[in-house]
């Protein structure tokens, strides 16, 4: 069901740890939905120097977290913000359609972590664009 890249990131997750002195932490998802993702950022001069994650969820959720943290390391906050769930899914060589919501969580977790940092710095959080949480029929309903 999963691509080799997904299985590789699931079996050997990159950056799977806590950053105790993180500058920004973002947590998204809910237990009802089945996936919860927490992303930690270490930020210096507007650049993400280190990123890590903790995830409760399926193979796709773990692999998306792992890939997303790899993709944002070394990026400016603006660049990291622009990384879409589509880009994460593509980097993973695709996800089954019913699993796309898991990669949406990765995008949201990055946004939440960046905004957490901005707020800590006394700055305005950035606005979400359109298209988040699409396809996750489990979130927010009933």
């Amino acid at each position: 069901m999963y691509s080799e890249t997904v299985m590789d990131h699931f079996n050997n997750p990159r950056n799977q740890r806590e950053i105790p002195d993180a500058d920004g932490i973002g947590e998204v998802g809910n237990q009802k939905c089945g996936d919860i993702m927490r992303i930690f950022l270490k930020i210096h001069d507007n650049v993400i120097e280190d990123a890590s994650f903790q995830t409760f969820g399926c193979g796709a959720a773990v692999a998306s977290s792992s890939m997303a943290t790899e993709m944002i390391k070394g990026k400016t906050l603006e660049e990291a913000w622009e990384i879409s769930n589509k880009a994460v899914a593509e980097a993973l060589e695709g996800l089954p359609p019913q699993k796309l919501h898991c990669s949406v969580l990765a995008e949201e977790a990055i946004h939440a972590a960046i905004n957490n940092y901005l707020e800590k710095m006394g700055l305005e959080p950035w606005e979400e664009g359109e298209g988040s949480c699409a396809g996750c029929s489990g979130c927010g309903t009933d």
């Binding site: 299985m7 699931f10 079996n11 939905c33 089945g34 996936d35 409760f56 969820g57 399926c58 193979g59 796709a60 959720a61 773990v62 699993k99 898991c102 489990g138």
Partner: peptide, 23 residues
């Protein structure tokens, strides 16, 4: 922990099982 990831890791160890997880 979540069921599908349990199954994937069990499968990697040669064990076929099942879960009630949504995922």
């Amino acid at each position: 922990i979540e069921g599908e990831s349990i199954l994937l890791l069990l499968d990697a160890n040669g064990i076929a099982a099942s879960t009630g997880s949504a995922c």
